[in-house]
C-alpha cells in the first residue's frame, strides 16, 4: 500500500481532479485563480518536490506570457483604455482577461502534471475499465508496448547505423526518409511479434467470458469520507457560481473585484477542495513527527 494521497482509492483521486479542473475553468476571479495556482503548485511539490513540474516551467512561462502580453495588443474590446499602441487601443479589460486566462490555463496544466503522477497508467485504466473495458484494455496494451518498441527501435537504429542509414547526417529529406525506413522495420517486426502476444492472451482465456477484476483497491471509510466532503463542497461551489459569485465581469467593462461574504465562503470551499492532497500529506507527516 502506498502512503499519503497515493493510498487513496483512484475514484476519490479522480473525483478530486474533476472538481479541480472544473473549478479552475469555472471561477474567473483573479484571487480565486491565483490561490488555485499556488495550491496546485504546492500539490505538485508534495508529490515529487516539483521534479516533473520543472520540465514544464519554460513552456508554461511562454504560454502565460503569450496570453498576458499578446491579448491586450490583439484584442481591443473593452471600455477603459490604458493607452494607444500604433493607433490601437490597449484596454484594461483585455489585459485583465489575458491575466485571468493565463492563470487558468497554467493551473489546468499544472493540475494535469499532478494527474499524470498520481493517476499513472494502471490507476487511470482501473477507473475506465468499468465503463469501457475493451477500450481500456486496448489503451493499456498500447502503453505496455511503448517501452518495448523504444528498445526495439534502438536496436534497429544500431543495425541501420552500420548500414549507413542514420538520422544524423544528410538533408532534412534524407533524414526524414531514413527515420521512416527504420519505423517501417519496426512495423514489420512488431506486427509479427504481436501475434505471439495475442496467442499468449488466448492461451490464458482472453475473451472467453465475463472478466472479473483482481481489485487492488478498496473503498475504505476515509475514502468515503473524503468523497462526501468533496461532493458537498463542490456542490456549494457550483451553486455559488451559478449565482454569479467567484467570477468577475470583464467585457464590456471590468466589474468590481470586491468580494462579498458568499464569495469568501466559496473561496474557502474551493481552497479546501484543491488542498485535499496537501491536507492528507500534511496530516501523515505530522503523524510521523509526533
Amino acid at each position: 500500500m502506498e502512503n499519503g494521497i497515493r493510498g487513496y482509492h483512484p475514484y476519490v483521486v479522480f473525483f478530486y481532479y474533476i472538481c479541480t479542473g472544473f473549478l479552475v475553468m469555472y471561477f474567473k476571479h483573479p484571487l480565486f485563480l491565483a490561490t488555485a495556482l499556488i495550491i496546485l503548485i504546492c500539490v505538485n511539490i508534495s508529490h515529487d518536490r516539483g521534479k516533473s513540474l520543472r520540465k514544464w516551467m519554460i513552456p508554461l512561462m511562454v504560454m502565460s506570457l503569450f496570453f498576458m502580453v499578446l491579448n491586450p495588443f490583439l484584442v481591443s474590446r473593452g471600455t477603459n483604455i490604458l493607452f494607444y499602441f500604433r493607433g490601437k487601443q490597449v484596454t484594461l479589460e483585455a489585459t485583465m482577461y489575458g491575466v485571468v486566462m493565463a492563470i487558468a490555463l497554467v493551473s489546468v496544466i499544472v493540475m494535469f502534471v499532478s494527474f499524470n503522477i498520481l493517476l499513472n497508467g494502471n490507476k487511470f485504466l482501473y477507473i475506465f475499465s468499468k465503463v469501457l473495458p475493451r477500450t481500456a484494455f486496448l489503451l493499456m496494451l498500447a502503453i505496455r508496448f511503448v517501452p518495448l518498441l523504444k528498445s526495439r527501435f534502438d536496436e534497429i537504429r544500431a543495425v541501420q547505423r552500420v548500414r549507413g542509414t542514420t538520422m544524423t547526417v544528410g538533408t532534412l529529406r534524407q533524414r526524414a526518409r531514413n527515420g521512416m525506413y527504420m519505423i517501417q522495420v519496426l512495423l514489420t517486426w512488431s506486427l509479427e511479434e504481436a501475434i505471439q502476444t495475442a496467442d499468449s492472451m488466448k492461451a490464458r482465456g482472453y475473451g472467453i467470458g465475463k472478466k472479473t477484476s483482481y481489485i487492488p483497491y478498496r473503498m475504505e471509510k476515509r475514502d468515503w469520507g473524503w468523497l462526501a466532503t468533496l461532493l458537498v463542497l463542490f456542490s456549494v461551489c457550483i451553486w455559488g457560481g451559478m449565482l454569479g459569485y467567484g467570477k468577475i465581469v470583464i467585457y464590456p467593462e471590468l466589474g468590481t473585484l470586491h468580494l462579498y461574504v458568499l464569495d469568501w465562503i466559496l473561496f474557502v470551499c474551493m481552497t479546501i477542495i484543491l488542498a485535499f492532497p496537501l491536507i492528507v500529506e500534511g496530516r501523515e507527516r505530522l503523524r510521523w513527527k509526533y
Binding site: L138, L141, A194, A198
Partner: peptide
C-alpha cells in the same frame, strides 16, 4: 473482435505514438 485484432490495433497505436520519438 478477436484478441489478435485488439493486439494489432494496440501495436499500431503504439507505433504511431512512438514514431514521434526519433522525430
Amino acid at each position: 473482435i478477436t484478441g489478435r485484432e485488439v493486439v494489432i490495433l494496440a501495436i499500431l497505436a503504439a507505433i504511431a505514438a512512438v514514431s514521434r520519438v526519433p522525430f
